[in-house]
Design a protein around this nucleic acid. Sequence first.
DNA 1: CGGACGTCTTGACGACTGTCCAAATTCTTG
DNA 2: CAAGAATTTGGACAGTCGTCAAGACGTCCG
Lengths: 211, 211
Amino acid sequence: MARQATGAAKRAAVAEIVRDDKFNARRIELAEAALETLGELGFARTSLREIAQNSAFTHGVFHYYFSDKLDLICCCVRHYKAKCVTRYDEVVATATSRDELTEGFLAKLAATLQNEARMHRLWYDLRAQAMFEAAFRKDVLEIDKSLEAMIWRIASRYAELGGKRPASSPGALYALFDGLFQSALLKHLAGDKRAVPELLDEVRRLLPTVC
Amino acid sequence: MARQATGAAKRAAVAEIVRDDKFNARRIELAEAALETLGELGFARTSLREIAQNSAFTHGVFHYYFSDKLDLICCCVRHYKAKCVTRYDEVVATATSRDELTEGFLAKLAATLQNEARMHRLWYDLRAQAMFEAAFRKDVLEIDKSLEAMIWRIASRYAELGGKRPASSPGALYALFDGLFQSALLKHLAGDKRAVPELLDEVRRLLPTVC
DNA sequence: CGGACGTCTTGACGACTGTCCAAATTCTTG
DNA sequence: CAAGAATTTGGACAGTCGTCAAGACGTCCG
């Protein structure tokens, strides 16, 4: 009888884990759908109903899976993070020379700016929101740290390939590239065709001087 | 009679100019009041009624002086600009040595971060909004240009005092300092006491290497 | 003085918001 | 297959939003 009870308990525990996984998978599905609309409209103009209408879900589902609008958006941000911070890792891993690393980095940079402008403007939007809404801060600061580490991996590898060491701190390097990217993104969204090539030129010129 | 008509016309013209000046002065008063609430709540959470309640005006007045909510906020942004871009000019004008310029710059930087955090987070908020709302772009890009020029004036003077020339482009320099400031602002607002001194250290270390 | 004009107040309008919930549906499990 | 749980639906709720307009206030000129 004890065996049976244990068996039943185990089965119940397994069932709960499966249920949790399904629950979390659904949350991510919903977050991904929400990111579409958020990237299109920005935080300020996005409502739960708008999100629902631009997706295959009804607005009630979002409240079943998220306690709150903030909860949903926090989940979106966290999910976005995982995709973002590994963007350049393959380039870093495979490049065998400074030139190769530079060209790989620049290519990805340009592609990101062109094809994922909406996701990135959302990131800048939410980072600004974090300055007002304390609930966002923890996640945003964490992502910022991850992005800084990502840039640092590139810079370190670049320096290593030249037998040098990076000339600046991780914070300063991230500030520099983040600032350049943000400015280029705004110009690109404003229809400035020169935004992308100018960013590439600038980065190409800068890389040897900072690492 | 022609004289009388001309005199009347002149008087009318003068009256109109006075009226316009009064009108514009009032607009700026209202914009200043609106900036209070915008700096407190951010763009997304600020309504015209909230602005009115936190000020000496009623919500109807804002619609009398501004065609639109966007019109009001554009006016706020433009007004904010004028205050901002001359912040360091006195330091640049009076400093007679690199050390003096450095210390003056750092002092103002720290004071700005501490005392005007709300206005600056609003700036970052609106700059992010400009990525979504085309109506903001012109003003935001213009302010960005002015800020870049402001940083460039500091860097040029700093280089000049050392008999050198700035080592980077205006765009890269602005990106660097803007990125550092933005990051420090977020940390400062999150309650990180080290944000300000770390920013100062970083800038102090960076200045001699970029100019 | 009185009427015209610029300024401001106040309340109303419809649209939209986040939230909640009861009923309907689908899925799971015994 | 049936019963119970999990999920989904779509409407109702109380607020808030931007906008507008009718009227009140004050001020200046003929």
